[in-house]
Design a protein around this nucleic acid. Structure first.
Lengths: 134, 134
DNA sequence: CTTGACCCTATAGTGACTACAGGGTGCATA
DNA sequence: TATGCACCCTGTAGTCACTATAGGGTCAAG
């Protein structure tokens, strides 16, 4: 399977919308492919690999900027992977912070909802919790 | 404290940037205030209450659209608060989904990071996990 | 009378896409 | 050969919830 791929093929192979692929090209994340006589983008397996990498990293929640850095590092095969490790650990710390924030939020919202006796709005505990009542 | 407030006063009182207040006005979330002779916005305690409500709801993670709905409901004092409850419970479900997603992500990323022996990029497990290797 | 803190409008930028509008290409079928 | 249809192209604007900037006006203190 070393054939040429259209943008639609690439999209199906990586579960990426065609517009997203063109967007990645526009921001310089995915290299510019060759064109057919009819001006269609023509991709090969190397492009497929690149896009797969990008999508896997995105699915793990890395930002496009982090993906850009990871791609740059992935190409320097004999460098130490410290920098890669640092990006990944930084991202893990971000995720931990988000989970902690959401968990605190969940606790608060859940306690507010628990107090709602479901009468009229005038006596609604949820509205009361949001309205200023000092 | 029934005085008139400038937009800066309002911002300080609610920890909201001045630009954000103007943005809320522009999208019709915060009612248009009176103006002074010098064309400054002039707010009163009612505006302060509205903005406090908005900020509390935002801090609990409600979207601006949800806040808009909650504000509309808050004004109908003798309606049943079922709709309020539904919005809040829907949001709680969103939060639960996000926490679950992030937790799964965290587990996966953490296991990838755990495998990194920190040698060169060529043998880096993190890059390997991202690169296509079938 | 000047300084500086505040205010005004209008517009554009962020991230990561997504959705048109208005066309061109390529291939199978009638 | 025509025609239909799925696909491709570019360019632009929209999403969410702000944030930032440019280029000005207002107001009170010193």
């Amino acid at each position: 399977m070393l054939g040429q791929l259209t943008i639609g093929d690439l999209g199906r192979a990586t579960e990426t919308k065609v517009e997203t692929i063109r967007y990645y090209e526009r921001i310089g994340l995915l290299p510019i492919p060759a064109r057919t006589a009819g001006n269609y983008r023509s991709y090969d397996d190397w492009h497929l690999g690149r896009l797969s990498f990008i999508r896997r990293a995105r699915n793990l929640g890395f930002s496009l900027e982090q993906v850009r850095d990871l791609l740059g590092l992935a190409d320097q095969r004999d460098r130490s992977c410290e920098a890669v490790d640092a990006i990944a650990r930084g991202h893990l710390a971000d995720i931990d912070r988000k989970i902690a924030d959401l968990t605190a939020l969940r606790r608060e919202l859940s306690s507010i909802i628990g107090q709602c006796g479901c009468g009229t709005i005038a006596e609604c505990r949820i509205i009361e919790a949001l309205a200023p009542h000092p």
